[in-house]
Computed example of a mutant assay.
Amino acid sequence: MLEENYELVESIMLYGGLSCLFVLMSIAVHDVLKKNDVPIIGRVVAYGVLGMGAVGFLAKGIIELFWLSAGV
């Protein structure tokens, strides 16, 4: 296997693993909020923070993609 293929597989596994972690974190947060009967504003804040983390992760990937395609 070429070195380029190793980097591609490593990148795919990294992003896939981090995406799975975000899904597992959201499931865990949902379970904790549901069991503790948290008010709606608390749920909105908790999901908002988790969502902003995911959006930041996606933005980083998109910015990195543009930079790599531009040769930076």
Rank of each mutant, 00 (worst) to 15 (best):
L2D: 15
A46E: 03
G51K: 01
A28R: 11
G42A: 01
M52H: 03
L65W: 06
M52F: 14
S26M: 13
L68E: 14
V38E: 02
L14N: 09
L18R: 12
V55F: 13
S26K: 15
V23N: 05
S11D: 10
L21K: 06
A59C: 05
A59R: 04
L50N: 03
L21Q: 04
A59V: 08
V9A: 10
V23T: 09
L58F: 13
A70I: 03
F22Y: 14
P39A: 02
V23S: 06
E7S: 07
V32W: 14
K34F: 05
V23Y: 11
I12G: 02
A70T: 03
Y15H: 15
I41G: 02
I63F: 07
L8K: 15
D37A: 12
E7H: 10
M52A: 09
D31K: 07
L24P: 02
V72L: 12
E7Y: 08
G51P: 03
G53V: 06
R43F: 00
D31E: 07
L14P: 02
V49L: 15
E4C: 02
K60Y: 11
V55S: 07
H30E: 13
L8M: 13
Y47W: 15
E10H: 11
I63H: 09
K34Q: 14
L68G: 03
G48P: 06
F66S: 08
M1D: 10
F57T: 01
L14V: 09
N36Y: 07
V9T: 00
I40G: 01
A70Q: 07
